[in-house]
Simulated assay, not measured.
Amino acid sequence: MSDALQIKSGSLRIGDVAPDFQARTTHGPAKLSDYRGRWLIFFSHPADFTPVCTTEFVALARHQDQFEAMDCALLGLSVDSLYSHLAWVRAIEDRFGVNIPFPIVEDPSMAVGRAFGMIDETAADSAAMRASYFIDPEGVIRASTCYPHNVGRSVDEMVRLLAALQLADKADVLVPEGWQPGDDVLQIPPLSPTDIDREDDWFCRKVKAP
């Protein structure tokens, strides 16, 4: 049985270890723990052959090289069957000339989606399912986003958030609103009362990104 099935639905939070599971994907059998050692964006979509999801998958595929350069894998999921996934991937390639290079997990029982809080435990279907989890190389959930079924995610924002998480880890800095790679970052405020008294910008000081 998948470890994910033992986790209470919707209980995952930032800082939790992502529950492991094994499932069939468009690239063969896979475990979530297979991705340990690198970053992972694990994201769900309501259904195959839906308009918004198609635009997201095309955009993610076109950013694949950028995610790879950031040492981050992509893993999709929906409640549809493996055969539906394969047909949809082929249809995207035929229609848009884009190959989907990342695996898509099948979840017809909605067990994984519910375990990750991607689907409410009382939901009859996956209509509200458009969630993303940013998981670090240790398997820890570092950020998550949730969008309604009728609004698509921004892949540029997914890249920005990943870059911000990686920079904050590497340099022990804070990342301000609207930050883009190359912009200044924020210094962590001092703990010494002496420093606070001496420097009037102690609580929000920008510094060059390392």
Rank of each mutant, 00 (worst) to 15 (best):
residue 153 R to I: 00
residue 158 M to N: 05
residue 99 N to E: 11
residue 162 L to V: 13
residue 80 D to L: 02
residue 18 A to H: 02
residue 53 C to V: 09
residue 19 P to W: 03
residue 186 L to W: 06
residue 3 D to K: 12
residue 207 V to N: 01
residue 103 P to W: 02
residue 5 L to M: 11
residue 12 L to I: 15
residue 93 E to D: 13
residue 16 D to L: 05
residue 147 Y to Q: 09
residue 26 T to V: 12
residue 65 D to N: 10
residue 41 I to S: 07
residue 188 I to Y: 07
residue 109 S to R: 13
residue 161 L to Q: 14
residue 210 P to R: 07
residue 46 P to D: 00
residue 93 E to P: 05
residue 167 L to H: 11
residue 127 A to R: 13
residue 75 L to F: 11
residue 174 L to Y: 11
residue 133 Y to T: 10
residue 199 E to N: 05
residue 119 I to E: 07
residue 66 Q to S: 10
residue 186 L to G: 10
residue 167 L to S: 10
residue 78 S to R: 05
residue 56 E to G: 00
residue 180 Q to P: 02
residue 182 G to V: 00
residue 150 N to E: 10
residue 208 K to A: 15
residue 206 K to T: 13
residue 79 V to D: 05
residue 168 A to S: 15
residue 69 A to T: 04
residue 194 T to M: 11
residue 49 F to H: 04
residue 15 G to I: 08
residue 86 L to C: 10
residue 132 S to F: 08
residue 2 S to Y: 04
residue 18 A to K: 00
residue 198 R to G: 02
residue 153 R to F: 00
residue 138 E to S: 14
residue 97 G to P: 12
residue 30 A to T: 13
residue 15 G to T: 10
residue 71 D to Y: 01
residue 17 V to K: 15
residue 88 W to R: 03
residue 28 G to A: 09
residue 166 Q to T: 09
residue 203 F to G: 06
residue 14 I to H: 04
residue 125 D to V: 08
residue 80 D to M: 03
residue 200 D to Q: 12
residue 158 M to A: 13
residue 130 R to W: 02
residue 200 D to G: 04
residue 22 Q to K: 12
residue 207 V to S: 01
residue 105 V to T: 15
residue 89 V to K: 10
residue 172 D to C: 06
residue 71 D to K: 14
residue 98 V to Q: 01
residue 192 S to R: 12
residue 96 F to V: 05
